[in-house]
Design a protein around this nucleic acid. Structure first.
Lengths: 227, 227
DNA sequence: CGACATGTTGAGACACATCAAACTGAGTGG
DNA sequence: CCACTCAGTTTGATGTGTCTCAACATGTCG
């Protein structure tokens, strides 16, 4: 498959699974990938309880992952940008424990897990990359734990914005000027803050001259938002 | 290696890597495992910044994993019981991002990562088990995120004790009566609570007749500590 | 037995949640 | 094109869960 949708043409391949692959390996990976129609806001890649069929690599747009508590409360566990792979948490029980939902119109590459498993048999680099990616997610989660336990509301939000900017930068976008695809409510849910606190701190950061806010448009005005 | 320390004789092998292995596979795994001398309280398996040499399976006793913030604050990210494997977060950068420290006198099995990698080449089940374990840790982290974001101090501690009891039960110990190998301070650090709050809630849970506390000895008196 | 870490308990402070009300903007239908 | 709606956002007033500070009790280990 040598069309415009293949991994070689994808701007985010160096962040995604093909990282450090040889040409031949990329072509093999391309063969198993299913390109899907765009997902629209609120549409789901999968729901909790569904059996694991595929992992999904974000091609454009963004997604949120979330789990539900026993009493039905939503807890957002991650926001996914292009190049991120979604669904690793389902490998454990071969069932998705979480939901994945588009935050805006988005494209994904579907990676059937059985094909990925077979391909891993042949390509050690693919196996290593899968391990590397999951391990990296563990590191992120540890960082997130510290943010929630040790940081104030202001620090959490600053860290969130800086981290988002950094991730946009990695993807070739501006690290200081971007559009939030998630609502204030979703940010608050993720950071363990009320929606009012998110709003208040956003305006306060603006008053302090650290950022400028125009609805969903964010501008980071100081290199680090710390202190 | 057919001594008393081999995986076949280990009570926790069904929770550990050999889960669902054939005899031949277990023997191969046994060959690469290094049995170490006991670690004493405060001794470390590894420190942040050290290159990844090995993963470690807890054989007896318990450990904590923690990371340090830029300003040197400790954040405990997990407590490890027998059968748990420690060090997966180091695969990402081939360097440990975290510390692992014994909470009491403990034994571990050292699993040299390069040997594990080679062995994975031959045994698909080992690869799958490694993936399954890492995926399971992702699920745990998601749960932890919800506990921190949505639960009150009382609920966090109740959930912590119930979860610990459950894990002891899985290992053939009493799920309702156990000894805490970590200090109040370490519990508070992990749950994002002050040491005073941990202490207060422990005594309050006792007054409510839900648990009995005698220093580090805990008795869970109601099946679920909820509400 | 003394010394030092660990744990308990109380009083006051504060960061953030909750409640309440008004504002904005995007989409819808007349 | 304008009213209408409704989700999302902002801002203010008040409440509260947990932290902090402080003093004391207990346990542990040389």
């Amino acid at each position: 498959m040598q069309n415009q949708l293949c991994c070689q043409q994808c701007h985010f391949s160096q962040l995604c699974l093909p990282y450090s692959f040889e040409l031949k390996e990329i072509e093999k990976l391309d063969d198993i990938i299913v390109r899907k129609n765009p997902y629209h806001r609120r549409q789901r890649l999968f729901e909790a309880g569904q059996p694991l069929h595929s992992l999904y690599a974000v091609r454009s747009g963004s997604f949120k992952s979330f789990i539900l508590s026993e009493d039905g409360q939503e807890q957002i566990t991650a926001f996914h940008l292009p190049g991120d792979v979604i669904g690793f948490d389902a490998i454990h029980n071969k069932t998705h424990p979480s939901f994945a939902e588009a935050l805006e119109t988005s494209m994904v590459c579907e990676l059937p897990y059985s094909s990925l498993d077979e391909l891993g048999e042949m390509f050690p680099k693919l196996r290593q990359q899968l391990s590397r990616t999951m391990s990296g997610m563990l590191c992120q989660n540890q960082e997130a734990l510290m943010v929630l336990n040790k940081y104030t509301a202001n620090e959490r939000l600053s860290h969130f914005l800086a981290s988002l900017g950094h991730r946009f930068g990695d993807r070739g976008f501006s690290p200081t000027s971007f559009r939030l695809s998630m609502t204030r409510s979703e940010i608050g849910n993720y950071l363990g803050l009320s929606i009012e606190t998110v709003s208040r701190i956003l305006t306060q950061l603006q008053k302090d001259g650290k950022i400028s806010v125009e609805g969903k448009l964010i501008n980071l005005l100081v290199p680090t938002l710390a202190d």
